[in-house]
Amino acid sequence: MLSQAVVNGLIAASTYLLVALGFSLIYTTSRFFHFAHGAVITLGAYLAYSINSQAGVPLLGAAVISVFFCGLLGVLMNHVVYNRLLRKGAGSLVLMLASFGIYLIFENVTTIIWGASTLGFSPGLPSSICKWHACITRIHILTLAIAAVSWVFLAILFARSRHGLLMRAVAESRELATAYGIKTHEIVDASFFIGSAFAGLAGILMAADVGMTPTMGLHALMMGVVVAIVGGIGSLRGLLLASLLVGLVRHLSIFVVGSQWQDSIVFALLLVVLLKSPWGFASDAAAQEV
């Protein structure tokens, strides 16, 4: 029982990490609460579903196409909505509200197109491996692996590549980056693309595990945001730690309280961490990472 809760916690941590990586990547370069990130999570799952079951593309191919489209969708949101608002002098509060609007529209459209009931990829339940009273499916293993690879990918991108250096500069100050001759709009676009692709990926993995509903993105986003804040936005190490903490606390809490309390426990954890240090886990040294 305990071992299963730990496994579940780790799986949850992986999806939260994916969402949080994308969210904080977008946040650090564009500095506003990209609420519509949640819509991208949902849409990733449904697009893969339709490409797979309606267009007949094998699931893996459908997932790749869907992830790519999610990346494009993020860039599109940035161009069609955010950039225009920014040019008109909108502040981060207006952007957040607009983003919330986008989320709601997408959620409703998703419900209209695919219906409100839970859908799942076929074939249904994948085979699972059981050991020490815990079972893990292939999707679970894939989820863990993809989260780990994504984390390493970003770590290398930031620490080693020219592009990562430019992203860090934009994250620090857009104006300063302009003075260095950096095309900040391209850097922001790139972070929207990568961040949204991560969101789509997270959506597909979650849907492959427990199915998809039009509201799945909202909950995933909330957990991802808690991870991003607890971990300290911008610190990759902090995000990794926070995702493990949030995932494990959420799933181990069922030993103490009922499952309907899981989210309250997570947000209580958020408050405790923030009261102790408002920057989350990111120490000063770690804050430089992104």
């Binding site: 250096l165 620090e172 430089q288």
Partner: peptide, 10 residues
Amino acid sequence: RIAEQMTIMD
């Protein structure tokens, strides 16, 4: 105006 959160080398 320099990137204060980044190292001198960066």
